[in-house]
């Protein structure tokens, strides 16, 4: 059986493509999450994960680490959704909320850093050796802000521009009014004079 060079090349290309697709996987949009939270308030931000592969990925999102500040409460971080399935070529927005425990004062200007990891959940094997699990991680930082009252005044009026003809219109109008009034007054005075003469 003769096998042409072209068919061998085609098979290799197919194999390479399949390998590439199988290996493609979990990803995230770059950038850290920086929270600026004051006592008694919450702040939410989002991170986006996606699946570039051709197979669904089941994931779990957890707060892997967060630093500790002595004598200060640690901010509470919630993640929603904390697990799910990413279909092939699908992305998922995960909301991360930070707040401080209620009834515990926090000094402003303190910082905590942590790491949120989004792991691919895979079946474990009973074979000996190391089982590798993959995921993506997101660095987060939380800074305690001072409480302040902000008054925001905003105008929704669209941008308007004064007409260049406005001054001309007004000037002409003024002159006309003055002329009319002077004329009326002049006629009135003439009639009054005539009346006095007679």
């Amino acid at each position: 059986m003769k096998v042409s060079t072209a068919s061998i090349m085609f098979s290799l290309i197919i194999l390479a493509s399949v390998t590439m697709i199988v290996n493609a996987g979990l990803g995230e949009i770059a950038g850290d999450l920086n929270f600026n939270v004051s006592f008694g308030s919450t702040q939410s931000q989002s991170l986006t994960v996606f699946n570039t592969g051709s197979l669904p990925i089941t994931y779990e999102a957890i707060l892997a680490t967060i630093s500790n500040v002595p004598n200060e409460p640690t901010p509470i971080i919630t993640i929603n959704p904390a697990n799910g399935t990413l279909q092939a070529h699908q992305q998922q927005v995960i909301n991360v909320t930070a707040y401080f425990p209620p009834n515990q004062r926090v000094d402003p200007g303190l910082s905590w850093t942590g790491l949120i990891e989004i792991n691919e959940i895979s079946n474990t094997s009973s074979q000996s050796g190391g089982v590798l699990r993959v995921g993506v991680a997101k660095v987060i930082s939380v800074t305690s802000a001072s409480q302040e009252i902000r008054v925001i005044i905003s105008s929704s009026q669209p941008t308007q521009q004064q007409s260049p003809f406005k001054i001309i219109y007004e000037s002409v109008g003024a002159v006309v009014i003055i002329i009319v009034l002077i004329a009326v007054y002049y006629i009135y005075m003439r009639k009054r004079e005539n009346r006095e003469k007679h």
């Binding site: 996987g25 990803g27 949009i29 950038g31 996606f50 050796g129 993959v134 993506v136």
Partner: peptide, 16 residues
Amino acid sequence: VPGVCEISLSSNRLSF
């Protein structure tokens, strides 16, 4: 176009 990163491993097992 946002910056993105992904992860794919050459193997899911380590055998010693």
